[in-house]
Design a binder for these strands. Structure first.
Lengths: 231, 231
DNA sequence: ACCTGAACACCGTTCAAGT
DNA sequence: ACCTGAACACCGTTCAAGT
């Protein structure tokens, strides 16, 4: 993320370098820190120099998606999944979880994916591979199509949760007290949380393992699709 | 959306009026048109006057979520769903589809929901009702918890698609030609699209009915949950 | 050809001043 | 008390000028 500070025009600027630096800036300071001026200083250059290699900021965000997608492609490549002909479910599951691992390293990336209006060719390529995988698994094109919609962003390893990734693992007394106050207004949620915390004494309030929950939802969909495929 | 142009301080400003106007501005011009200055002119007032009724723009976005949620609550109220004790699936399904109808009237709203870091109390209230509904349907709290995560934003009626809502219903020759060019790089997707278009000659390329696909994914999850409930 | 500095048209927001 | 105008610190971006 520090990039070649002071390196100046030693290594000439390029679209490639700009995009990689953009990913680095977002990784280090979050997506709101990715401004043209910020990106320029990370590259040891003036903000206006960027415009010689990318059309504008939108183009940078488009390019950033491509960088992340190529990282996902590499991760998928390293995966030792069974051929889809033998076990489409495991093959797809491993692909999606590999993609998810990459996105967990770039937590700001899903938000950027969502803002892109024209879908990146790299994403289309990824989905084409998913379609091929499902076809090899014996799906009709009609069911493949439904499957893509049912998976939505889950095909790339992320979902939109309605609660933030509540890293309130502390389970301190203040939170518990607040919970009791809230019990009047949200009786079911509070009871649910207390019962789950009781079942799993290790996690007092940090009762949401995102990975476990992601896989639960994913398997629910994959199992449902398998039922429709064979049914 | 025009609001009381020129009404000036006739009707005094209030948090309520500010938030309702904000929804109107976003409905009319998209979320990027919702700026403090724009909102002010819609209210016939100076931009700085807004700060007497809301802390800042973040507070406006928080409030906008509450306005949308109350609209959803009203829509849910009008729904004639069966009691969850009799048929939890239909009850939840109708609730979610009612929420979705509201969000379809405010297409920018899901994007705002996603940016809120602290979850709105109105959303929590909504989810509490969902939990109560599932409990009445015979779910264990453990399964309810999994269900909330599996549904994610689908509980509120929206999903993140990887393709934009491709309103390219025209099916004009240019698109078809481009498709053939793309067939080399995306063989499976292109074959899928052409086969589906063939199955359903009415929709040449506008082969994605978002509502149908949303319900397909929703039912896949709801059916899966029903299996786990009774299994 | 690539990079730069100053400038422009926007943001959200602060502050002191009006009534 | 509520509203205002000018100003500030940021954006992305244009343009003419440097090398």
């Amino acid at each position: 993320m520090v990039a070649d500070r002071g390196a100046g025009p030693q290594v000439p600027l390029s679209r490639e370098r700009v995009l990689r630096a953009a990913v680095g800036v977002a990784d280090a300071g979050g997506i709101e820190s990715l401004t043209m001026r910020n990106l320029a200083v990370a590259l040891g250059v003036e903000a206006m120099s960027l415009y010689h290699h990318v059309a504008n900021k939108e183009a940078i965000l488009d390019g950033v998606v491509d960088v992340i997608m190529s990282e996902i492609d590499e991760a998928v490549q390293r995966t030792e999944a069974p051929p889809a002909e033998d076990d489409w479910k495991t093959a797809l599951r491993m692909r999606i979880l590999a993609a998810r691992e990459v996105l967990l390293r770039h937590p700001w990336a899903p938000g950027v994916f969502e803002t892109r209006t024209t879908t990146s060719l790299a994403v289309v390529r990824y989905l084409d591979a998913v379609v091929g995988l499902l076809r090899a698994g014996g799906f009709s094109y009609d069911l493949v199509h439904h499957a893509l919609h049912a998976l939505g962003s889950r095909a790339l390893g992320f979902t939109q949760e309605l609660f933030e990734p509540d890293s309130n693992g502390g389970g301190d007394g203040a939170a518990t007290e607040m919970l009791e106050q809230l019990a009047g207004e949200f009786p079911y949620l509070v009871e649910m949380m207390s019962e789950i915390a009781h079942d799993d004494p290790d996690s007092t309030l940090g009762w949401c393992d995102d990975q476990v929950e992601f896989e639960f939802g994913l398997d629910l969909i994959l199992d449902g699709l398998e039922g429709l495929r064979t049914g």
